Simulated assay, not measured.
Amino acid sequence: MITAVGVGPGNSQFLTLEAQAAIATAELLVGGSRHLATFATSRQQTRLLDADLNGLLHELRRDHRRQRIVVLASGDPLLYGIGKWLAAHFPPQELRIIPGISAIQYLCAQVALDMNELYLTSSHGRTPDFDWLLQHHKVAMVTDAVIGPRAIADAIIQRGLRRSLIIGENLSLPTERIYRLQPEAVAQRYDINVVVILNER
């Protein structure tokens, strides 16, 4: 059986009890280096989740019927996470998904922003259609190193729009910072972050 576990926004205290139990009983843990360093024990086998998804798929298909395999996902596995990829390759009877608290959920909770009518998206490996996105009154974007807060701010300025940006950096970690800024005040660089774009007319 393969279990995809959402490990929350970063701090292990946001791990659900169900996620804790799945990780504790896993025979093979698959995850990024930070996740493996946090959750793996000496009695578990580990496999780094990297760009070699074809190799991972081969291993999972070979081993999932004889091992309890847990794939660790940042935030929630189905919110721009590994869960979608797993669901495309394994039927529901061979895949269990344990949801986690996403960085977007966490940020909204920290600033008491309701998530009603919030459009969720990601800039990981893609170029957002800002003309379409900025028609929405509330957008939450999981960013990457290419399209981050500064690129979002520039897109807003180029279109002559007024928006507020809530930037959550290193969420749930000791170095967490949350900013509420106008586009002109957005810095060039932030650590791992999520951005909420608000039309506050």
Rank of each mutant, 00 (worst) to 15 (best):
R65L: 00
A109E: 15
A37P: 03
W85N: 07
L79D: 01
N116D: 14
Q110P: 07
G55D: 00
A51T: 13
K84C: 14
S102P: 09
L49G: 07
D50V: 12
Q44V: 08
T46K: 03
A109Y: 11
L48K: 13
L95R: 05
S123V: 12
P91W: 07
G81F: 04
E27K: 10
A51W: 10
R43S: 08
Q105V: 01
C108K: 01
L95P: 05
D52K: 11
E94I: 01
K84H: 14
L86W: 04
A88I: 05
R43K: 06
A37V: 05
E94Q: 13
Q93W: 13
F130L: 11
L29A: 00
K84I: 14
G55V: 00
D131H: 13
R62F: 09
L49P: 01
G75E: 04
Y106K: 06
I101C: 10
L107K: 03
P99E: 12
L79P: 02
T41D: 11
Y80I: 05
S123F: 11
G100F: 09
I101K: 05
D52C: 03
L78S: 12
I82G: 02
Y106R: 05
A112P: 04
A40N: 06
F90V: 01
Q67W: 04
R96M: 14
G81I: 03
A88T: 11
R65I: 00
I101Q: 05
G75Y: 01
P77Q: 13
L95G: 07
T38C: 04
L79A: 08
A112R: 15
S74K: 05
S74Q: 07
Y80L: 02
K84P: 02
L95N: 06
L28K: 06
G32L: 04
K84R: 15
R126L: 08
Q67S: 09
A87M: 12
S42T: 15
T127I: 13
L49W: 12
L79R: 02
A40D: 03
Q105W: 03
R61W: 05
Y119C: 10
R34A: 10
M115Q: 12
A73Y: 01
L56M: 02
R68H: 11
Q93D: 15
R126D: 07
S123A: 15
R61M: 08
L49T: 08
L72D: 04
G75D: 07
T38Q: 11
A103Q: 01
G125I: 12
T46G: 02
R66I: 10
Q105K: 06
S102K: 02
Q67H: 09
T38Y: 02
T25F: 00
G75Q: 06
